Amino acid sequence: MKKQSFHIDGAKVTVYLDGPAWDGKPSATLGAFSCKTMQSGTSVLAQAISFVRDQGLNQIIGPMDGDTWHSYRFVTQTDGSPSFLLEPGNTPDALEVFKKAGFTEISGYFSARVPVVKTALTTPTATTDFTIEAWNGTHPEALFDQVFNLSTQAFARNAFFKPITRDDFMAMYMPMVPMLKPELIFFARQPDQTLAGFLFGTPNYAEGPKPTSAILKTYASLSKGAGQHLAHAFHKAAAAEGYETAIHALIHDDNLSAIRSASEGADIFRRYGLFGLKLNG
């Protein structure tokens, strides 16, 4: 990963020169951005933009730590409720610095919450195309190997997708294994036992050792309807485990899951944006 970091007193940013395509063209990304003042943030961002231009690129995406497998997005709206586990965060100044530099929102996302007793009652139509099973908690390397294979297929259709190596994927996710709760992780399997989809849920440990909310963090499927069945299994399990609230985390505004979240009566409490800048000349 080609990158260069810039620092000014009270501000920093990292430029990734091999970011994902935007509108079919190569882009740089700006990640790890922070600033203590608007002035320092503006200065360090100007350095980063100048560097990108000097490298012959004229599109920049941010904030993004190189790709969508890593941290990206700014919080753009919030009701002030506490951050949940693994949620991106930023100061209002950071967002304003990007906007003043000419960045505009190119993709929107949201997080919503809903009482699990409400969603657990909504049973999807039965199917023989796949079966839903919870992870038994064993062989995590084999688990993540399957998840990697399905993720690279399912997410390849997403905007700003960039492939990642299996080794890099494992390096990111294997350290999370001690935090995983098997009863909140589900798989959809076809009759021949091939993987049709997966869902990763986790307790919201940001609340402390005994959280009352569970996060529907990530799911992907290659079979129509698998996502709805996986989500139902998650909500039902969360209710059985005594969680009060489900957090539907970081959903793209145009995703089918956004429609499903709304239909389940989930209330949006945070919005996020990914921003872009096209340079002239």
Rank of each mutant, 00 (worst) to 15 (best):
W135S: 02
N136F: 01
N136C: 04
G137F: 01
G137S: 04
T138Y: 06
P140T: 07
P140Q: 08
P140H: 03
A142K: 12
A142I: 09
L143T: 10
L143A: 07
F144E: 11
F144H: 13
D145M: 07
D145P: 00
Q146I: 00
V147Y: 11
F148P: 03
N149M: 07
N149Q: 13
N149C: 03
L150V: 09
L150I: 12
L150K: 03
L150S: 04
L150C: 05
L150W: 02
L150Q: 05
L150A: 05
T152E: 14
T152I: 14
Q153M: 09
F155E: 11
A156K: 13
A156S: 15
R157Y: 04
N158R: 05
N158Q: 12
A159I: 08
F160I: 08
K162F: 08
K162V: 08
P163G: 08
I164F: 05
I164W: 03
T165F: 09
R166S: 10
R166A: 12
D168R: 12
F169V: 03
F169N: 06
A171F: 02
M172I: 14
Y173R: 12
M174C: 04
M174H: 02
M174F: 04
P175R: 03
M176R: 13
M176I: 11
P178I: 05
P178G: 08
P178A: 07
M179Y: 13
M179W: 09
L180F: 13
K181P: 00
P182F: 00
E183T: 13
E183R: 10
E183K: 12
L184E: 09
I185F: 14
F186Y: 10
F187V: 06
F187P: 01
F187W: 04
A188L: 03
R189F: 03
R189K: 15
R189V: 07
R189L: 11
Q190Y: 01
Q190C: 10
Q190P: 00
Q190W: 00
P191I: 07
P191C: 06
P191Q: 08
D192V: 07
D192E: 13
D192W: 05
Q193T: 12
T194W: 01
L195Q: 06
L195K: 01
L195I: 06
L195N: 03
L195H: 01
A196H: 02
